[in-house]
Design a protein around this nucleic acid. Structure first.
Lengths: 327, 327
DNA sequence: TTGTACGCGTTATCAC
DNA sequence: GTGATAACGCGTACAA
């Protein structure tokens, strides 16, 4: 494994000169620089990030913790974030918590251990205060996305309570009276039931508690949905996540139901919903990615500013996209 | 940022003792060990991976390069791989090449630079021989998944030529005579046209070159599909990837076409295909993940064995799942 | 413009 | 059982 020492040796220059040439920093004559670059290339030299980060204390890496790799919506956001951060010369380190608080803690430890310059995550609970504090003490900016579990930490949320309100209103307009809400059983996620209840009350429809159902977001709930349909006889269903929506339609399929009988609205506006002409609550992915990256970059830049600003809490509204399932 | 030094200081022990306690290695009295662990916890100490890797030369990390974050199929594989590797105490570092050879090279450099213990990737070209060689020289096992661009490097492929054969046969059985094949314009990917042509020739159907179309896998081709449908009047379409399948159905939607007129088969058996009752060529994701992780782990284990085994080339067959679009 | 020398945080070797 | 100390590869004052 050739090191910078080998490169220096091969060129009869000092390590310092080689380093300056390789890092494009400080003075070094054009002649030697070329020689060094060429030698590095020929030797197959690759800088050791570990040594570099250890030395400089900066990794030029941003850590992202995603709760559910099975939810395509996150992939879309991550894709944009990678592109955005690359513009600022930041790499991205992606970890998955699988909606598990302990795994999330491990992820935090790993990111901190790797000296990341910032951490973006969707909290699964508020049980990792310890790691949050460590990050903050190290002046590593932390940003919560999509959920807000720590009041003193920056957050960027989509107002899904409002989304649920929009969805419920729309179904009511379509004539639905018994609307089943399938929402994520996750702490600190935007409160969909709240918007749902508000919409109902505005239409003077009494709230049936049985119609508000919470489930873990990373598990298949086809069986549960079928049972609920049988027991509660809903005339409309709001699926709070893409995967829940998939399960709803699978349940329909297995029961031979159609969307004529039970209207469906699904969150997240993924491609396949368009294919099926499904009304959806759209999260503006572009917006989210851009703003999240901007916030992160600026927090890194002002890292050493004192005193730190108070935590920023941004909330944007989703949008209702009405479609009509053909046939 | 508390280091091991701070922990040692707080406990009045040497750095060496603290290290032994923290790493659970070597001798240290139970009493001191407890004290050290407690102090580390209280101080918020987290080991610095960079320093550790620098010192030991081992990162306990496996690097994975995915070509297309927009193809959900890869996410499924990655999910399984993370779980599998965790069993062996390996972390996973995921990078995306976006089907770009140069980015892939950057990714390789980053992984090598991070001292990963193995690299799993889906090659986008054979232009990164340089990095392959560097990896091999460093005795970092490399595994190609899904495509094989380097003969002397282990590979694990799905026989998509056979998949295309199965799909074509099935459409022929359904009475299709003009079958449009939408395949990925990627070097070294399994040769779908080959299976397609073989199936046609077995049925004595002449091959129309215009019906074999290659596109970049990470771009929307709705427009192109619409054009092809108009110009070539196919009675069946085989979409070689999930995204191509989505685009096909979007094109149908925009043109007001149904699958009664043009039969569709899509590769990859993603969830939404089940929702739409679409016949598919299924890649056995569980199988792939398990085998890929097994191969990788064993290659790491035998890293220093001499001489190295010859490159392994494994190919598994996909499966045809027949469904009937309802209505 | 170039080179010497130090230290980043860690683990491992060796004496004690 | 424990504690100095060297070394991993690198960047950078500082001296030349």
């Amino acid at each position: 494994m050739p090191t910078i020492k080998d490169v220096a040796l091969a060129c009869n220059v000092s390590i310092a000169t080689a380093s300056r040439a390789l890092c494009n920093t400080g003075y070094v004559s054009a002649e030697k620089k070329n020689m060094i670059l060429k030698a590095a290339d020929e030797l197959g030299y690759i800088v050791d990030t570990n040594a570099k980060t250890l030395k400089t204390g900066v990794s030029k890496t941003i850590g992202i913790i995603i709760p559910d790799i099975g939810n395509f919506w996150y992939s879309l956001v991550v894709k944009n974030l990678i592109v955005e951060f690359k513009k600022y010369d930041y790499k991205v380190l992606i970890l998955y918590s699988f909606e598990d608080s302990e795994t999330e803690g491990d992820n935090f430890a790993q990111l901190l251990s790797n000296n990341v310059d910032a951490i973006i995550f969707t909290p699964t609970s508020n049980k990792n205060r310890r790691f949050i504090n460590i990050a903050l003490k190290r002046k590593v900016p932390v940003l919560q996305v999509y959920r807000c579990a720590y009041e003193d930490v920056d957050s960027f949320e989509v107002n899904d309570a409002y989304g649920a309100y929009l969805a419920t209103k729309e179904l009511m307009q379509e004539g639905c009276k018994r609307i089943l809400l399938l929402s994520a059983k996750v702490d600190f996620t935007p409160d969909r039931p709240k918007g749902y209840i508000q919409a109902l009350s505005e239409g003077d429809i009494p709230v049936d508690e049985n119609l508000i159902q919470l489930f873990r977001p990373d598990q298949s709930i086809i069986f549960e949905i079928k049972k609920l349909i049988n027991e509660c006889q809903p005339d409309g269903i709001i699926a709070g996540t893409g995967p829940f929506g998939q399960d709803t339609l699978s349940a329909f399929q297995e029961m031979g139901l159609s969307q004529d009988k039970i209207k469906v609205i699904i969150f997240d506006n993924l491609d396949w919903m368009k294919l099926l002409n499904i009304t959806t609550i759209a999260q503006p992915i572009e917006d989210i990615s851009t703003q999240v990256s901007k916030i992160t970059i600026s927090r890194i830049a002002e890292k050493n500013k004192l005193p730190a600003d108070k935590a920023l809490h941004i909330k944007i509204n989703p949008e209702l996209i009405i479609r009509h399932p053909g046939k």
